[in-house]
Write a protein that binds this DNA or RNA. Structure first.
Lengths: 266, 266
DNA sequence: TATAGTCGGTTCATTATTCGAACCATTGGT
DNA sequence: ACCAATGGTTCGAATAATGAACCGACTATA
């Protein structure tokens, strides 16, 4: 691993749960030498990527990201694009729609949209991080990721978010072929109890999987009809989103035929 | 300069004007070897800090900033705080108020607010970059920066944005003591013709200058009364902003006494 | 008040990583 | 067909990263 990667990986230890980290602790977390971490932090700080909280205290993410994110967003307004797509998806299904992007070996939430059709909705959180093995979105991404990446991801210890979370690598691997066949991943209660989630991968210009679009609904509301509706809408919407973001599904990606067309037409 | 700094400095070449850059061009811009730039870009790409546009094409800023900016903003909602302060400042003066942060050796726009009191207003741009020598904000920052930083900044070639831009380092240095005395920098037409700008530095928890808050007005509208009003409001607002962002003005920073108190009271 | 264990920050000889000139294979314009 | 770009790759030389040990300052404990 190069020096730059080490420096950048330090940034991944900052999260909503641990927004500021001390030098020694960060050295411990990253497994790097304290002096090394100090140098890296100093360089990061010089560019505004981290900053120190008080005097001689912990570090936190710096102000540079505001500008860079603004530039990125200006050039590739992914969040706006995603939000617009999610709103339509959400209107069509009546359930919470969200989209997340692959960031290292986790997914981070990009945007989400709620429906007001029902009294209860699955709630999402900004900048939330989703593990690949415990969510529908994660499974969708794994199914369209290189084998080496899957191996790496599944070789790490898999934590159980709920009693229904799959933590057996063999079991997870077994799901991937069928996901590839349908283009849709389904997960029940893997991330939150009583939530059933459908997810479809999103691809970039090189047909690499960069994230997933998903619909999350309470288990209690799921019917065959709703499931079919979600699958149809989600697949069409995700394809379109990939396209307007400048991406292309790989050749192997299934050309989905809506199953409830007849019902719609009838 | 460390390897990490080199990698991070590559990111600074991306701007609104040049949102995507090829390998060779980036090597030229940065003065680094092409192989070096390639390695650094590869590492940056691995963390989502840059990405390639098509197949074998130019690079642009990556999606990682969305998440990191969200985390940063979640912990330190600087933009919201700034926006709120700017709105009040703008209401009080009737002119465009904006705030920018020091990022390396330039200022980047954080937020701005327009008034609807007049038909014409000075306009701002998101993620715009301001050079330190050509703007009121820049002069305010220079006046409260370490000598070494001033030397470094003024030793680089200074480009003239307008016919009124100061480009002589000696001339610029001569302004700094008076800015330090009043705490306010004033610049006429340095960045845009016919715009007069007042700026006050903003400080962090260690009393280091991290940016500036400013009011920009058309030259044609400037009167002694407006100038005084802007100075009073701006100084008070900037002090307050520094404070609620968790910062402290240095001991040397002047304790400003509003000059038009009597007029107000009368 | 003495002590032990933190913390952030610093030093310096060793060593592993980065560097860069030269070199491909492609592409696009003349 | 040619030339001058481009993105990407190689490998010995040179540089920059590394980490154990060490500060001084703090804090909690005894």
């Amino acid at each position: 691993m190069g020096t730059t990667s080490k420096a950048l990986s330090l940034l991944n230890f900052f999260s909503r749960a641990t927004p500021q980290i001390g030098l020694s602790e960060l050295a411990r977390l990253s497994g790097l030498n304290k002096a090394t971490v100090y140098r890296l932090l100093t360089e990061l700080a010089g560019h505004g990527f981290v900053e120190q909280v008080g005097t001689g205290r912990e570090y936190r993410l710096g102000p540079a990201f505001l500008r860079l994110a603004a530039l990125r967003e200006n050039q590739v307004p992914m969040r706006e694009v995603a939000l617009q797509q999610l709103t339509q998806l959400c209107d069509a299904t009546g359930e919470t729609a969200h989209m997340s992007l692959l960031n290292g070996d986790v997914l981070s939430n990009l945007a989400y949209a709620y429906s007001n059709r029902h009294g209860t909705m699955v709630m999402m959180e900004d900048a939330e991080v989703l593990e690949l093995h415990s969510t529908g979105s994660g499974l969708a991404v794994l199914a369209y990721s290189p084998v080496s990446f899957v191996d790496e991801t599944l070789s790490a210890p898999l934590t159980a978010r709920t009693s229904q979370t799959l933590t057996d690598p063999v079991e997870i691997r077994a799901l991937l072929p069928s996901i590839r066949k349908s283009g849709i991943a389904e997960s029940t209660g893997g991330f939150e109890e009583d939530v059933i989630s459908h997810a479809v991968p999103i691809f970039d210009a090189r047909s690499a999987c960069i994230g997933a679009m998903a619909v999350a609904a309470p288990v209690s509301r799921m019917t065959d009809h709703l499931r079919q509706q979600i699958r149809d809408e989600l697949m069409a919407r995700a394809r379109h989103t990939t396209r307007i973001l400048g991406g292309f599904p790989p050749d192997s990606f299934p050309t989905y035929e809506p199953q409830n067309m007849l019902q719609k037409e009838a």
